[in-house]
C-alpha cells in the first residue's frame, strides 16, 4: 500500500484515548450524582448544563454514560482476563502435549463452542445464585462480578482454540526442537520460548475478545440479566430508553453511540497495530 500514514492506528488511538479519558475522569469527578432523580428535569433536552440531556427520572445522561462506560470497561477487562488466562493455559497444555488429554479437552471445548457465548453466559448466570453454586455468588455478590465470571467462562473456549492451534504449529518449529535438544524443560519451552512467538496472533485475539466482551455485556444488560442496579450500564440504559423512543430518541442515541465508539476505537487500534 502506498498510504504512508496508518490512519487506523491514529483514529483508533484517539478514540480509545478519549474513552479512557472519559472513564478515568469519572473516577474522580462526575458532573452530577448518577442516581439523583429530579422530576423537573424529566427528558430535559441537550443543554450546556446537561450535554446529553436527562432521562425519564431526570438523571443526567452524560454522567450515567460516564459511569456506564466504566462498568462496561471493568466487565470487559475482567472477562478477557479470565477467558484469556484460562484459555492460554488450556490451549498451551493441550496444544503442546497433544495426546488423549488434548482429544478429550478439545471435544468438550468443541461442544461448548456450539453454544453462542451469550447463551453460555446466560446459563452460567442462571446457575449461579442458587443451588450448589450459590456459595460462589455469595462470595461475588450479584451484579457485575457475576457477569464477569459468566462471560469469562463463556469466552474460554474461543481463546483455548486459538492458542492450541498456535501451539500445535509452533511445537513443530526447529527452534523448539533445538530447545529440547539443549535440555530445556517443557514449561520453560512453553512459556519462555513459545509464548512470545504466539503474541502476533494472541494480541489481536485478545483485542477482538475485548470487543466481543463489551458487546456481550451490553447485550446482557439490555436483556436485564447483566449488571444490576445500582450500577449504571450502557445496555440497560438502552433498554430503558427504548420505551421512550417515540418521544425522546436522543436518550437511546448517546449510550448506543458510546458503545459504538468504544468498540470502533479498539478495533481500529487492533487493525492499526496489525498493519504496522
Amino acid at each position: 500500500m502506498k498510504r504512508k500514514k496508518n490512519f487506523n492506528l491514529i483514529i483508533g488511538t484517539v478514540l480509545t484515548g478519549l474513552m479512557l479519558l472519559l472513564i478515568v475522569t469519572g473516577l474522580f469527578f462526575l458532573p452530577y450524582d448518577p442516581e439523583t432523580m429530579d422530576i423537573e428535569l424529566k427528558f430535559a433536552g441537550m443543554s450546556p448544563a446537561h450535554p446529553f440531556g436527562c432521562d425519564n427520572y431526570g438523571r443526567d445522561v452524560f454522567t450515567r454514560v460516564m459511569v456506564g462506560a466504566r462498568t462496561t470497561l471493568l466487565v470487559a477487562l475482567g472477562t478477557v482476563g479470565i477467558g484469556a488466562g484460562a484459555g492460554i493455559l488450556i490451549g498451551a497444555f493441550t496444544g503442546y502435549f497433544g495426546g488423549w488429554v488434548d482429544e478429550v479437552v478439545m471435544r468438550i471445548i468443541d461442544a461448548l463452542f456450539a453454544f453462542p457465548s451469550i447463551l453460555l453466559a446466560l446459563v452460567v448466570i442462571s446457575l449461579l445464585g442458587n443451588g450448589k453454586l450459590g456459595v460462589i455468588s455469595l462470595l461475588l455478590g450479584s451484579g457485575k462480578y457475576q457477569v464477569i465470571l459468566a462471560l469469562g467462562i463463556a469466552f474460554i473456549p474461543s481463546f483455548a482454540r486459538v492458542v492450541r492451534s498456535e501451539y500445535l504449529k509452533q511445537r513443530e518449529m526447529d527452534y523448539v526442537k533445538n530447545a529440547r535438544i539443549m535440555g530445556c524443560g517443557h514449561l520453560r519451552i512453553m512459556f519462555v520460548h513459545i509464548l512470545p512467538n504466539i503474541m502476533p496472533v494472541l494480541i489481536p485475539t485478545v483485542m477482538i475478545g475485548f470487543n466481543n466482551a463489551v458487546l456481550s455485556e451490553a447485550g446482557m444488560s439490555y436483556l436485564g440479566i447483566g449488571v444490576q442496579p445500582p450500577d449504571a450500564s450502557l445496555g440497560r440504559m438502552l433498554s430503558e430508553a427504548q420505551t421512550y423512543l417515540f418521544s425522546q430518541p436522543s436518550y437511546a442515541l448517546f449510550p448506543g453511540l458510546t458503545i459504538v465508539l468504544l468498540v470502533l476505537g479498539f478495533s481500529l487500534l487492533a487493525d492499526g497495530l496489525e498493519e504496522r
Partner: peptide, 19 residues
C-alpha cells in the same frame, strides 16, 4: 548424555525469532 547437539537445515526457523 548431552553430548550430541544438532544444526538444522533452515537457519530461519531454528532460531527463536523473538529473542
Amino acid at each position: 548424555k548431552g553430548s550430541v547437539q544438532m544444526v538444522f537445515q533452515d537457519p530461519y526457523s531454528s532460531l527463536n525469532p523473538r529473542k
